[in-house]
Simulated scan of single mutants.
Amino acid sequence: MAKRMGIRIRRLAAVLALAASANASAELVVIVSARNPAPLLSSDQVAAIFLGQARRFPDGAQAEALDQRLGSHERNQFYAQVAGKTPALLKAHWSKLVFTGRGQPPREAADGAAVRRMVADNPSLIGYIDRAALDASVRPVLVLR
């Protein structure tokens, strides 16, 4: 029991540390192609797509999440803010879904520029980038503060 409580406290501390570092970081935006008619999304809707719980945008169109590379600051910040998950918790989440055959983690792109290019070219994709990297090829559907 005490061991489990210690693990929970460490996890909570890690999430809080990630959230604190996120506040000192650049502002992230969740983006879709400029050709995608999806409305603004809530954090819960975005989390559901990125955690494999939803495969469609609210209008019914297919949604495919695109992550930044494993270990990147942007990825860690994104999951801490949207899903409240540390990298370890996220790995455990996907391990369980893959093992049970209920899902596969999102594809990865090398960096924010690659995410923006790929999302701009495919209206089904949804990704996240630094707000400063926005251009007319994509549009934000959620701003993370």
Results as ranks from 00 to 15, higher is better:
residue 28 L to Y: 02
residue 90 L to V: 12
residue 91 K to V: 11
residue 132 A to D: 05
residue 20 A to H: 11
residue 130 D to E: 13
residue 69 R to L: 09
residue 86 T to M: 02
residue 10 R to W: 14
residue 134 L to Q: 02
residue 89 L to C: 10
residue 44 D to R: 09
residue 51 L to H: 08
residue 37 P to I: 10
residue 99 F to N: 10
residue 96 K to P: 04
residue 142 L to Y: 06
residue 137 S to E: 01
residue 12 L to N: 12
residue 107 R to F: 11
residue 69 R to M: 11
residue 63 A to E: 05
residue 78 F to M: 06
residue 105 P to D: 03
residue 145 R to Y: 05
residue 88 A to F: 10
residue 124 S to A: 14
residue 102 R to N: 09
residue 75 R to D: 00
residue 54 A to E: 14
residue 31 I to Q: 00
residue 75 R to N: 03
residue 99 F to M: 13
residue 32 V to K: 01
residue 89 L to D: 12
residue 124 S to Y: 07
residue 21 S to T: 11
residue 11 R to E: 13
residue 3 K to V: 12
residue 67 D to G: 02
residue 127 G to L: 00
residue 54 A to T: 04
residue 37 P to Y: 06
residue 26 A to Y: 09
residue 14 A to C: 09
residue 126 I to S: 01
residue 73 H to S: 13
residue 1 M to I: 05
residue 32 V to Y: 00
residue 81 Q to C: 12
residue 3 K to D: 10
residue 117 R to C: 01
residue 145 R to M: 03
residue 53 Q to I: 07
residue 55 R to L: 14
residue 5 M to Y: 11
residue 3 K to E: 14
residue 85 K to E: 10
residue 105 P to S: 00
residue 21 S to V: 13
residue 100 T to W: 06
residue 88 A to W: 14
residue 48 A to P: 05
residue 87 P to Q: 02
residue 41 L to F: 02
residue 126 I to P: 03
residue 5 M to W: 13
residue 130 D to R: 07
residue 59 D to E: 11
residue 69 R to Y: 04
residue 138 V to K: 06
residue 4 R to D: 13
residue 114 A to R: 07
residue 38 A to D: 01
residue 23 N to K: 15
residue 108 E to Q: 13
residue 116 R to N: 09
residue 44 D to E: 15
residue 98 V to Q: 13
residue 43 S to L: 10
residue 79 Y to A: 08
residue 66 L to S: 08
residue 98 V to T: 10
residue 13 A to R: 15
residue 145 R to K: 11
residue 48 A to C: 09
residue 129 I to P: 01
residue 92 A to G: 06
residue 47 A to L: 04
residue 94 W to V: 03
residue 111 D to Q: 04
residue 23 N to L: 15
residue 28 L to R: 03
residue 137 S to R: 04
residue 35 R to F: 09
residue 110 A to R: 12
residue 65 A to E: 02
residue 107 R to E: 11
residue 27 E to Q: 14
residue 95 S to P: 05
residue 44 D to G: 12
residue 72 S to E: 06
residue 137 S to T: 07
residue 94 W to G: 02
residue 71 G to M: 07
residue 82 V to F: 08
residue 113 A to H: 12
residue 81 Q to P: 06
residue 37 P to V: 04
residue 41 L to Q: 04
residue 35 R to I: 10
residue 40 L to W: 08
residue 135 D to N: 09
residue 17 A to I: 03
residue 39 P to C: 04
residue 40 L to C: 07
residue 24 A to M: 13
residue 78 F to E: 09
residue 121 D to R: 14
residue 141 V to E: 01
residue 17 A to P: 05
residue 77 Q to N: 15
residue 86 T to Q: 00
residue 28 L to I: 03
residue 132 A to S: 14
residue 84 G to L: 08
residue 40 L to K: 14
residue 17 A to S: 13
residue 90 L to A: 06
residue 74 E to A: 10
residue 71 G to R: 07
residue 97 L to N: 10
residue 98 V to Y: 10
residue 8 R to W: 09
residue 126 I to G: 06
residue 129 I to A: 01
residue 42 S to Y: 01
residue 86 T to N: 06
residue 134 L to K: 01
residue 33 S to H: 02
residue 94 W to A: 08
residue 11 R to M: 12
residue 63 A to H: 05
residue 74 E to Y: 07
residue 44 D to Y: 06
residue 12 L to K: 10
residue 4 R to Y: 11
residue 104 Q to W: 15
residue 40 L to V: 06
residue 48 A to W: 11
residue 117 R to K: 13
residue 40 L to I: 09
residue 57 F to V: 02
residue 141 V to Q: 00
residue 64 E to W: 12
residue 130 D to Y: 05
